[in-house]
Design a protein around this nucleic acid. Structure first.
Length: 194
DNA sequence: CAGCAGATTGACT
DNA sequence: GTCAATCTGCTGC
């Protein structure tokens, strides 16, 4: 079942980061359908979060889509090379987003291996999963209820006791907010079989 | 306008 | 463990 607009509108970034674990990202890009189960996320909690691109209400060409209504993609280039995929959540003008950090490939393995030969069992980081799924900055602002990228609930249940939380990766610059437990991942022992 | 740091990755010592 | 790759935005001259 494809996630509806209400899923994105009615949760803040922490709630969404938690409930996106176990959901399935599907892309139909370049003539191929590929899909992966979300195994790791991070929440970026808006204008009070020093680690967020929207900290202090900052708006730039790059982060403008964070202020859109929940249910669109925020894709930006990190370190000049890597395309990072975020799910924009919450209401218009409330710039919450969830960074998808890792997936477990499910469908379209042939296309995924063409895009990324080493993507066999899992894609270990936020910059590699976008390559595997064919997502790039040209999909910034894309509706997740649309035809190119969407997220499905396929009934994979992730229980709270099987979720590990901890500090986000690579945000040491965010001072006290760097320690907040906004990183969520499915315990390795409870991942679906590759 | 130059310099630098950043929600990273992979190649190399 | 170290470092280059290379785009966006911020700081300071």
């Amino acid at each position: 079942m494809i996630l509806r607009r209400s899923f994105y509108l009615e949760q803040d970034a922490c709630e969404a980061a938690r409930s996106l674990l176990g959901k399935v990202i599907v892309t139909r890009i370049g003539g191929s359908v590929t899909a992966g189960l979300i195994t790791e996320t991070e929440a970026y909690m808006g204008i009070d979060d020093r680690a967020s691109h929207a900290y202090g209400g900052k708006r730039t060409n790059r982060n403008e889509v964070m202020y859109a209504r929940g249910g669109v993609a925020y894709v930006y280039i990190c370190y000049g090379i890597h395309h990072l995929f975020n799910v924009v959540v919450h209401d218009t003008e409330v710039p919450h987003a969830v960074l998808i950090r890792a997936i477990r490939p499910l469908e379209g393995m042939e296309a995924m291996l063409l895009r990324r030969p080493s993507a066999r069992d899992s894609t270990g980081g936020p910059g590699t999963l976008t390559q595997t799924l064919g997502i790039s900055v040209q999909h910034n602002g894309e509706e997740l209820t649309g035809k190119l990228i969407w997220i499905e609930d396929r009934g994979f249940v992730v229980r709270d006791r099987h979720i590990l939380t901890g500090p986000r990766i690579g945000v040491a610059y965010a001072k006290e907010d760097a320690l907040l437990p906004y990183r969520y991942r499915i315990a390795p022992s409870h991942l679906p079989l590759p």
